[in-house]
Design a protein around this nucleic acid. Structure first.
Length: 274
DNA sequence: CTCCAGGCTTACG
DNA sequence: CGTAAGCATGGA
């Protein structure tokens, strides 16, 4: 077990872990989460972040995207007074670089669901089918382990209609019928075309995986929250039919906020949650 | 009771 | 092409 004391700039641990992009972190005296099968404990004192984990320091820096140049990113996406206000209000909110498999399953579970239910379902999946790595902490089940789970045994996780979708893609990945990790090397557009082939994955969930796991910062996932706040802030621009409206918003955001629009999405999303 | 939640699939014009 | 019901579950 290592202890890292990392000096940061423009990093806010609480905002980063509570903004809804990750589902398994919990805060008591300090934050605790399981990432890549290892426990991470984290707390922040002013600019200093203190990490306890068996993972190496480079992994931690990568996971929290500590090497992102936030001054440059803020300058790039700061297009008007509204987003400038959000940058002031939530300065230090970072994207996280999640594991693609856990991210994919998590967002398949997000379909027509609440954050509370998503968290509970994922926790039960880890308790039932992950490995116990510490008292009360479980790893996220691998595609291989989930591929051997029967649908009736998934019922206790309360995924509802999403359960067969999770088991199906788990099986496909375990049998090398779908190359999830290969998407890392594809462009945003190519990666999206691959991801939407998965049963239960449309444009929005694909965009979440591309942004939160594969680091495609030009991805701008549009859900009900983002649609509402974009309507409120920039609504006069979207006149398309209902079914195409979310695509229209995403395209506008890519053009308007630029190549780091994924970061802008996080700030807008947090504003709508709060 | 009804309605909705970080949507997607399928069915029907 | 386009739109709209249906989907499990839980909480307001």
């Amino acid at each position: 077990m290592n202890v890292y004391r990392i000096n940061t700039k423009d990093f806010n641990l609480d905002l980063t872990l509570s903004c809804g992009q990750v589902f398994r972190w919990e805060k008591n005296e300090r934050w605790a989460g399981v990432v890549n099968g290892e426990l991470i404990r984290a707390r922040q004192l002013d600019a200093e972040v203190i990490i306890d984990s068996a993972l190496d320091k480079k992994f931690i820096r990568d996971y929290f995207r500590l090497d992102d140049d936030m001054e440059k990113i803020y300058a790039s996406m700061n297009k008007d007074q509204k987003i400038a206000s959000l940058i002031r209000k939530y300065r230090g909110l970072r994207l996280i670089r999640q594991d693609p498999w856990e991210c994919l399953v998590s967002y398949i579970c997000s379909s027509n669901n609440t954050i509370r239910n998503i968290r509970n379902s994922i926790r039960r999946m880890c308790e039932c089918f992950g490995d116990k790595i510490y008292e009360g902490y479980f790893s996220f089940p691998t595609p291989e382990s989930l591929s051997e789970v029967q649908l009736c045994d998934m019922e206790q996780c309360r995924l509802g209609f999403r359960a067969p979708r999770v088991l199906k893609i788990a099986s496909m990945i375990a049998k090398n019928e779908f190359d999830l990790y290969g998407i890392k090397t594809l462009s945003y557009e190519e990666g999206r075309r691959e991801l939407v082939k998965i049963d239960g994955v449309g444009n929005k969930i694909a965009d979440c995986v591309l942004l939160f796991a594969f680091g495609k910062l030009e991805s701008f996932p549009v859900d009900t929250h983002i649609e509402q706040i974009m309507d409120m802030y920039y609504g006069d621009k979207f006149k398309g039919s209902k079914s195409k409206k979310r695509e229209e918003i995403a395209e506008f955001a890519r053009e308007y906020f630029g190549k780091y629009c994924g970061y802008a999405q996080e700030y807008l999303y947090l504003e709508d949650l709060g």
